[in-house]
Design a protein around this nucleic acid. Structure first.
Length: 209
DNA sequence: AATCGGATTAACT
DNA sequence: GTTAATCCGATTC
């Protein structure tokens, strides 16, 4: 199924991804993940994973069958399976061989909510459709079959595009979630004050986020 | 060949 | 806040 973009929606170019994931990640905020069946959502929370320099990254210990996509061309989708039931979606970054990427953690559903709702039966409200990495993948129908899909050419009917909305000038940055190593690296970004983000949104007393 | 534990979620108390 | 669910890649034996 060919991806037809609405007027004004343009795929992010290959060069956008060819940088360090900590540089790409905040600039993915407010971009749109779109599928050929019309489903689309605005990316509001992301996390960077930096390959061999990042003990929390799947790619830290080198290339394997599971993470091979991460070591390929930037701008492709790296999809992994975890906890026996969840899929995670990442945009591959950097240069070929580096194994870096950005995990898409949360999304504000924009289009095709009627398709997403039956896929997310546990979501009582629409804001629960994609406010977590596993939920986002489930709502968008992303499984292992999409591992390696090109987000620039949309060869498998999935892309990340800009609708002209810029990333937030001052995104909220904080520690990553759900990992046990290198937790201290402030490599999670989200759109300030956005309700469609995962995890704890409320700053700790005296905190800065 | 067997075990370990995870880039999570949902349903509990 | 706690925990079960559930699979498979990675690591260990």
């Amino acid at each position: 199924m060919k991806l037809v973009l609405p007027p004004g929606w343009t795929p992010l170019p290959r060069e956008f991804y060819r940088r360090h994931p900590t540089q790409v990640a905040p600039e993915l905020l407010n971009r749109i993940l779109v599928r050929a069946d019309g489903r689309a959502g605005r990316i509001v929370e992301v996390e960077a994973y930096a390959g061999s320099e990042d003990p929390a990254a799947h790619s830290f210990r080198g290339k394997t069958a599971r993470n091979a996509t991460m070591f390929g061309e930037p701008g492709h989708l790296y999809v992994y399976f975890t906890y026996g039931m969840h899929w995670g979606s990442n945009a591959v970054c950097g240069e070929v061989g580096e194994g870096t990427g950005v995990l898409l953690r949360a999304m504000e559903p924009l289009r095709g909510l009627d398709v997403m709702r039956p896929l997310r039966p546990a979501a009582r409200r629409d804001r629960d459709l994609a406010n977590g990495p596993g939920k986002l993948s489930q709502a968008m129908g992303i499984t292992g079959e999409f591992d390696g899909a090109d987000l620039v050419t949309a060869d498998r009917g999935i892309a990340i595009v800009s609708d002209g909305t810029p990333p937030p000038g001052v995104p909220v940055v904080g520690p990553r979630i759900g990992i046990t190593r290198a937790v201290e690296l402030p490599w999670r970004w989200h759109v300030p004050g956005h309700v469609h983000v995962s995890g704890p949104r409320r700053p700790k007393r005296g905190g800065s986020s």
